[in-house]
Design a binder for these strands. Structure first.
Lengths: 337, 337
DNA sequence: CATAGCTATTGGATCGTTCCAATTCTAGCG
DNA sequence: CGCTAGAATTGGAACGATCCAATAGCTATG
């Protein structure tokens, strides 16, 4: 087991100096084409692999971006993560993806590890919970940090934030359900007290308030399982409810499955609108109406804003809201009860 | 904008030498507790952050494991990735997750980038397609590399491989459908010619052959969309088919949605079994029977085998097959046609 | 009180690259 | 043929940690 070859070995083999090899590695157009050929051949022959740690040590700029996601299992975030990675890859940046699993402690570890590995910037969708220390530490590094899709609960203004205009989306969904004839519209999902829950709920509340209608809200973890359970609760405790705006598509899909299980399939008298418009929404049965968020576009946008910050030092505006639009499908368009 | 403090700055502040600071960083029990206190205080005061690039350069051992997944959007793989990351985190290793998106070229780039960043080992679920170069390069590094869940098509024996016993699983599923009274069992999904398709199909084929029954197979991308489309094809071209073993749960869910759309909901005469038992299988309606693969357990196992290799130099057996088990649910237990 | 045997600390060399200033090469021109 | 401008190449310092061998400090012991 011998050690990995270095540029010195390459240089010796190619009969040039290490500096020349370094220039070749960096794609400098200052080396003569034939010299470049020789060097490249030498590299291939002895199986040279670039040692990025050494390079970073000297040059301090790393083509590495960290991405910390609170729940990578959620397809919405998975889609964002993969799209962002691809957008950054196109610009020559590598992305390390990590999942904090809604655990502020794990999140702190992950962020720390990324800083140590010398990421040039960080994109984070924060876990719920107390994490001021993590963010203070992050702020001290002076690294470009973008909050996306979610904002931490305290110190909201520490880093620029970009997300969708959830309030407008839920208002649109609620108005749509009213137009379709619904009169008792519940809100289902979302952990109480969270900023994002407030946002996604606020549009619904404002519209119902303006109409003087009753407001039933069931809060809980935003999972399929909670949606199923919520279906039973609605049927048992709030039989008058004839429609629901859901915190996200997972809850909506669970809700629909729950109604189906109870023999009251959605589409016949009960209307549902979800949030996020994940791929599955168009492929469920009945197809799920959803507030679409063009997450792939958002990811590309995020990449562009991040690059502008990193490369041109152009700090993005502190808060950005991307418009959303309702995609009506069968789950909210069925015949009235 | 001043530069990041180094251990020299910490040393100066704490009134000790850089070597002592280094020992503190490594948690050596050779430093006096009060000295440690002093040093730690100094670090906190000047906001020191560890520079892992520099450390790696000298020590060559990096607590970093690379994970390259062919389709991170597939919940099955997402679950595996997050579980593996957590298992490795518990042992002090950081994991970089990347998505090759079934693109051998992107995969080559990602693998290259990971090697450059000095990962201590690599876990890969290869993309379909030609990638000998990538794997040869990988083999030359001498790094521990584990193939999981999928095996590359050529040079199958280059790296140890671990997966589930898919053939046994599909045989069990097929026998179960026969027991339930099905007589025309189709196989749906899976790209033709792939090793994994052959595996998941072989059990089905053997059982049907033994019974002398007809074998209808629809191949295609293993997505929800293909499942929906397959439903239409089955209804139109193979009306006699009364059950299906699906390549994976996504296809099965799409198939169920497609039948529902056509007014022939699964559970009434038509039976479906999926593969992977993703979380959603238990939360769809009707609940989906599926061949369960305990992916989280598999991930923990993978972590253990990888650590044994990295730390103790114990190369795992070349091929490992984890048993699977059928979880029967409503989608295959409904009343006969 | 000298000394052996610890433990705790230290300075210098080192890892593999990039950066910089200096040097060598090449071609063109009078 | 000598000179020069520009291109191509080069050697040495630097990055920030770890490693190692050497040293200083401290007790216990004869």
């Amino acid at each position: 087991m011998k050690r990995r070859p270095t540029i010195m070995d390459v240089a010796a083999r190619a009969g040039v100096s290490k500096s020349t090899v370094s220039l070749v590695l960096q794609g400098s157009k200052q080396v003569r084409p034939e010299t470049r050929k020789t060097v490249e051949a030498a590299m291939a022959e002895i199986g040279y692999v670039y040692n990025r740690a050494a390079a970073n040590l000297r040059s301090a700029s790393v083509g590495l971006v960290g991405l910390v996601i609170n729940d990578l299992r959620n397809p919405f975030f998975t889609e964002f993560a993969t799209s962002l990675q691809m957008a950054l890859a196109a610009e020559g940046y590598a992305t390390v993806i990590a999942n904090s699993d809604e655990d502020p402690e794990l999140q702190a570890k992950l962020v720390g590890s990324m800083i140590e590995h010398g990421v040039a910037a960080l994109v984070i969708s924060p876990a719920y919970g107390e994490a001021s220390d993590t963010f203070d530490q992050l702020a001290r590094t002076g690294l470009p940090v973008l909050q996306v899709l979610r904002r931490m609960d305290e110190r909201t203004d520490l880093f620029p934030f970009a997300s969708f205009d959830y309030a407008a989306g839920s208002a649109e969904a609620t108005r749509h359900l009213l137009d379709q004839g619904a009169r008792h519209i519940a809100f289902v999902g979302g952990l109480p007290g969270r900023a994002i829950t407030r946002e996604r709920k606020s549009g619904w509340r404002e519209v119902l308030k303006a109409e003087g209608l009753d407001q039933v809200a069931l809060h809980g973890k935003s999972t399929r399982a909670f949606g199923m359970q919520a279906a039973d609760t609605l049927l048992a405790d709030h039989p008058e409810v004839d429609a629901a705006v859901c915190f996200n598509d997972l809850v909506a899909l669970g809700l629909m499955a729950g109604f189906a299980r109870a023999g009251r399939p959605v589409g016949q008298g009960f209307r549902v609108v979800g949030f996020d418009d994940i791929e599955e929404a168009a492929q469920s049965w009945p197809q799920l109406s959803s507030v679409s968020c063009d997450i792939a576009g958002f990811a590309r946008d995020t990449a562009a804003r991040l690059l502008a910050w990193m490369v041109e030092g152009q700090r993005p505006e502190p808060e950005l809201r991307i418009p959303v639009r309702l995609v009506p499908r069968a789950s909210s368009l069925g015949p009235a009860a």
